[in-house]
Design a protein around this nucleic acid. Structure first.
Lengths: 402, 402
DNA sequence: GAACTTTTGCTGTGTTGAGAACAAAGTTCG
DNA sequence: CGAACTTTGTTCTCAACACAGCAAAAGTTC
């Protein structure tokens, strides 16, 4: 089986491929309509893409009163890989051309163990997934990392929680190991791309994705495209100051949002409550394992522990305060809440909504849904696949996109 | 003299015209290079645009060792109008095709007197400017308004300081009165466009323009285009809360940025200081006129009055606090400070810089200039001209821009 | 089962635009 | 001063592509 040619030959082919990726198989007539290409030109490009094994015939569609239309779809052999590196775990997924997840793997890691160990784990997971033959060939991989990334260089830049990763050539390393194009980005950005492609933000051009996990970050989508900012650090809202003389933060400043509302802060406050004995449930959990995590708090919330609910509410309120500012500033059409803490859903969301709706202009909040992530843990890996597919399904750089 | 045809015929002509607007006259060779058009096609389009009287020959350029190139430039008769309506005054300017200001007029008004009176004043100013024959024909006008605007409808939406303007069809009215296309936008957005076209932000794709005047607002440029947000209220940062239990704001909430740092707040605090007698200079000014304005404070600052300086510093600090959050979030390449209060320059800027640099990540602030507006009062009118020229020099809607 | 509809594949035609070739206008160097 | 070289502007040719037309295929409707 010959290898799929690496890239489309012209912008029309790129648009065609991305359309098939985003909205599934289509008849030739629909494609011509959508891309405003003549049938002759379209037929020619489809022939070329079929030769290149990018697309294939997908059988016939039910007739709508005339000749049946023959369906064109992305090749069944097209495979993308999404890698989502978190602070304590790594997720790997293999998707087909439409970025539907075909296989998924997960491993506990410590991101502080350095890039070599973590990337090896990711490659291991991928090998295991590929062992069953679902992906004889892969065509690109997108990697998400929990810290600032220079998208251009494909490497982390001064990441606070990732010792040993600074400037490590993640893109280069992975690309060498896999022999395919790789792109690297911030994990929150990839989650935003994931929700944009297959989640709640499918039809929204301007939205924010707020991730509350070990840290707090925000993915920004403007006009259907990720906004990374001039130095790639856009969305770094975890260290926005919300109180002049607040608790100290790992970043060296004090009063940062993360010091109040991140998973880390939640665990810290839960342990304080456990020690103080104000919540029997938390105290019990604490004495059993000697420590508490944010997940313990959400567990306690799910059984209605009032102290845990209060902690979560307070965090939600703090995030909501900051979010209210960002909503006034950015005027998005949707806010998606994601991350481990978001697992505790309703109480958090209610508090955030009330903070935002109370503090922002009616004009900005009048029609602003604030919702939970639809893809949850899968958002990152789907976003990774989306990121690299955007590159692989476009004409190579240097050849103009017009 | 036949009237210039209203719009270009195809996207190439549009790109050509906007290039001439933005970077001045060019030789045919340079145009072909920049637009990636063949010389034959280019010559044809230039011929068409010459027939339509959009462009004309600009003589010959000095030879660079071969045949002299003949220069193409925008028609000398092309005229755009910028109208900048503020809370207490209205500015009108006439520009040529490259948006250089040819004539400028200003009048004191009260925006609360309602749209009819204010727009009449603007039209009057324009007539006076045109009386000397600099603009026999005008080709479009851009109007800026100090409040939220529905860009699509060309009308203000629930503006807090403009009673009687809500939903008033400003675009329609002005377009009828002038007989040319008109666009209406928020005044801060237009200032951002002005700085983008002819000011400090000329070569910056992503920047923020913060205006501190009667109110506080922010223009957001992403990828060289204004970001208006889904309901057109993006940049409305005046009512971001910076203190839970702060002073009351005209908006009904308390602790808003505007309640601390706007021109209105500055005047309020200055009068309090004058009454308390802590600044002889302010007390004297106060007793002379019975009231103090933000301009009185900046005057006092310019002669070194310590209380006035302190007031300004405190305002700058507050704006800097909010700006630090926005910089972390948005990661712009430049921040431009504009508005009446910005007239007091250095002390304000220094305080804002220190607040931002202290609170934002090094990655985001590493190369972030925070500078004063270059165009100052002209930014709004130039931005108005820019706004409408973008429309007039593009193919009409419905005809695709590809 | 006849008439009609819808879609595809193919062919021919006319238009558009890129690129080559050529002419014109200027500079530089011997 | 003129030959060689550079740059610009114009004309010509060819390829690409949109569009229309037609036949075939495969259904639906009456």
């Amino acid at each position: 089986m010959p290898r799929i040619a690496s890239r489309p030959e012209n912008p029309q082919q790129g648009r065609l491929l991305r359309l098939l990726r985003d909205s599934g198989p289509h008849s030739r007539a629909e494609l011509g309509e959508a891309l405003k290409l003549s049938r002759s030109k379209l037929a020619h490009e489809i022939d070329r893409l079929t030769e290149l094994e990018f697309v294939e015939s997908g059988g016939f569609a039910a007739s709508r009163g005339g000749r049946r239309s023959s369906i064109v779809r992305l090749s069944k052999h097209l495979r993308f890989v999404g890698v989502d590196i978190g602070a304590t775990s790594v997720d790997v997924a293999i998707t087909d051309g439409q970025l539907d997840v075909l296989g998924h793997g997960n491993a506990e890691i410590g991101v502080h163990n350095g890039p070599d160990a973590v990337l090896d784990t990711a490659l291991d997971l991928l090998s295991k997934l590929r062992a069953d033959g679902t992906a004889p060939d892969i065509h690109g991989a997108g990697v998400g990392i929990p810290g600032p990334v220079s998208f251009r260089d494909g490497a982390p830049v001064a990441p606070p929680i990732m010792p040993g990763w600074d400037q490590y050539p993640v893109r280069e390393t992975m690309s060498q190991a896999l022999g395919v194009p790789v792109q690297v980005d911030n994990d929150v950005n990839l989650m935003a791309l994931g929700e944009l492609h297959a989640g709640v933000a499918r039809s929204v051009d301007d939205f924010l994705l707020v991730k509350i996990g070990t840290g707090i970050g925000c993915g920004i989508v403007v006009g259907g495209e990720l906004h990374r900012g001039v130095s790639g650090s856009a969305g770094d809202i975890g260290h926005i100051q919300i109180e002049e003389n607040g608790p100290p933060c790992a970043c060296g400043n004090s009063g940062c949002l993360e010091a109040y509302a991140s998973g880390t802060a939640l665990a810290r406050d839960a342990m304080a409550a456990a020690r103080a004995g104000s919540s029997p449930r938390l105290t019990e959990l604490f004495e059993k394992s000697g420590a508490l995590s944010a997940a313990d708090v959400t567990d306690a919330v799910s059984v209605g522990d009032p102290v845990a609910v209060q902690l979560l509410r307070s965090g939600g309120h703090r995030v909501g305060q900051v979010l209210a500012s960002l909503v006034s500033f950015f005027n998005p059409g949707l806010v998606v809440v994601a991350g481990g803490v978001a697992g505790a859903g309703h109480a958090l969301l209610a508090e955030m909504r009330s903070a935002v709706y109370r503090r922002s202009l009616p004009l900005a909040t009048g029609n602003l849904p604030i919702v939970l992530s639809e893809l949850a843990a899968a958002a990152g890996v789907v976003g990774g696949a989306r990121l690299i597919s955007d590159q692989v399904l476009s004409v190579p750089r240097g050849i103009e996109e017009r």
